[in-house]
Write a protein that binds this DNA or RNA. Structure first.
Lengths: 332, 332
DNA sequence: CAGATTTTTGCAACCGGTTGCAAAGTAAAT
DNA sequence: ATTTACTTTGCAACCGGTTGCAAAAATCTG
């Protein structure tokens, strides 16, 4: 077993409180005492037990990092940014993989058992109610990549997917496309729904367009490719707004495999601007989602909430912008 | 604050031990008592504090998941498999992102403070000494994707990178390539070193070959592309064994951008068989690394070690195999 | 039904820390 | 040298559980 406070105290010939205090900053300890204790601690190789102290302080510095996006490459970056950002602030990410779980109950219970100081729900597909379950259980929560709302029930950090849908629509119209398709991710994902709604509402304002839409089974290469293959069997649209980049790349693959070319035969615009979209052999025109800012802002909010748990729920929405690459024809 | 054992005990009119026992399986409690306690617990919404109990039981069910590979897409799958596998066994992954950290000391200390039951080091670039530091600190550890050794100091699960290098070499020779290059990942990564050693040792047995080698700055698209661009400025080899798939894809991009074609002008073989390698617009010939088995086996080993911490260190090496796709010319 | 055996329960100490409070020690002020 | 004010230290209770042990209750035997 590891060295305990008591052993250090005995070795240094002081009380247990004295040892505790030298390892608590802001506590009252004389220089002489501190040196004595630190020496003993060093000799013994002592390091304080964070969990035992959490019992009395009520703080574990554990943060639940809850996600169901373990298949989309952008989430590797998301995890990278979250773990580094949290670590830099002395917080520890306890990772929860929801896979197909949609019921928050089990995760909430588990995170409460481990007394996490807070939870970050990082998902563009889960509903606001999912995140709310954490709040209701008394766990401070921020929903990253969550659904935009002007009156959120929990802290939300992300983008306005409806506005993104509109932006994509405008850019297709501006390029003179008339037969326009929406090829979304899974239909039950909030991000899909919002992008779809924004896209369609913008296009409704433009008469004479020929609109269509369909949904892929997942945000994945294979789902995008399969759905595009299906669309190619009848007459496809002139241009598609795809649910996200990885879906777009599958679509791209399907199109070129069929002997058609992009953007000559079919135009394509994605969303996310993942690293791969910029690879020269993909070169996807897409809408940039400012991931780094979203993650950092989420962490800031989380940290703020640790001091002020009842902070009024806030939505932090970051603007997106189109990154012009090679999968849409130029503006006429 | 959350409901405590004591409150449940008072409500049920029984002792605290009784409550504790109903939530500890294998403890002696009568049916009547159990029902009484469970009712009270339900009424109050009680769930036991895992960390408080860890104080006496000495088990937290926390497992440190330590990695420095937050840029290689295959690690998203690795994290997915690890988190799910651990969760399924009632264990909780505490994620540690090393980024450029190569000194284990800080991570070891941190994980000890949180009393993790064990640690998984998931990295193909860190040295065996890194993992050993955990063992030396009394933290049961398994090194996944670590360097193969017949006398390992800690449990290692992965592949034999030397053998993979040889396998790649043989396949290039069999296809009649004579001017052959090794284009590795970062030179200080153990996986790079081993693949290089195996590759070269095999080729040395074949006289009359023209060998070359170089190393990319990282296992990344951009590093691969940049290094290939450089090689293309003088006379490139006929075929390359690339450090890994994501590197290969960058190399592929550089080649086609230069107006050359694969495998007509230059052949390419990667390593990992990541999902992307199978995408029809990439179609990379590569060596398959059985990630799922490696992760599952690592978890099994970890679980075994929880009961038997002094288990003799074991190396579990899984065979790799070539996946033939479209970036090498056919065997002559 | 008494006695022996087994099961269930509560007491109290413990896990590794923290912290309010009062006593002891130091330094400053008179 | 006293008094006053402030700092440092230790005591003891507490955080939320677990567990060995012995007493109490239930069950089994003959």
């Amino acid at each position: 077993m590891a060295i305990t406070l008591k052993e250090v105290a005995e070795r240094a010939g002081v009380s247990r409180s004295a040892v505790s205090r030298t390892f608590t900053d802001g506590a009252s300890v004389s220089e002489k005492m501190r040196r004595k204790v630190e020496k003993a601690a060093r000799d013994l190789g002592y390091s304080p037990n964070a969990l035992a102290s959490s019992l009395t302080t009520g703080r574990t510095k554990l943060i639940g990092l809850v996600s169901n996006n373990f298949h989309n490459p952008i989430f590797l970056q998301v995890f990278d940014l979250f773990t580094r950002g949290l670590q830099d602030r002395g917080l520890r990410p306890l990772l929860v993989n929801l896979s197909d779980e949609t019921d928050p109950e089990a995760s909430v219970r588990m995170l409460r058992q481990y007394s996490v100081d807070g939870a970050v729900v990082a998902s563009s597909t889960l509903s606001p109610e999912f995140a709310k379950a954490f709040r209701d259980a008394g766990v401070p929560v921020v929903h990253s990549f969550g659904r935009h709302s002007s009156t959120p029930q929990v802290h939300v950090v992300g983008i306005d997917n409806v506005a993104c849908g509109r932006m994509a629509a405008r850019s297709l119209v501006a390029r003179g496309y008339r037969r326009i398709g929406f090829l979304g991710g899974p239909q039950n994902a909030t991000s899909t729904q919002d992008r779809f709604a924004g896209f369609m509402s913008e296009l409704e304002g433009h008469p004479g367009l020929d609109l269509s839409h369909s949904f892929a089974a997942a945000y994945s290469f294979n789902a995008g490719r399969a759905e595009m293959m299906r669309l190619l069997r009848s007459e496809p649209a002139e241009a598609y707004f795809c649910g996200d980049d990885v879906l777009s790349i599958g679509v791209l693959s399907a199109i070129t495999e069929s002997g058609l070319s992009v953007p000559h035969d079919i135009g394509l615009i994605g969303l996310n601007d993942m690293e791969m979209a910029g690879w020269q052999n993909i070169n996807l025109t897409t809408i940039h989602q400012p991931i780094r800012q979203i993650v950092n802002s989420s962490i800031e909010l989380m940290v703020a909430m640790l001091d002020e748990p009842d902070r009024y729920p806030e939505a932090r929405i970051f603007p997106c912008s189109i990154v012009e690459r090679g999968t849409l024809r130029p503006v006429t």
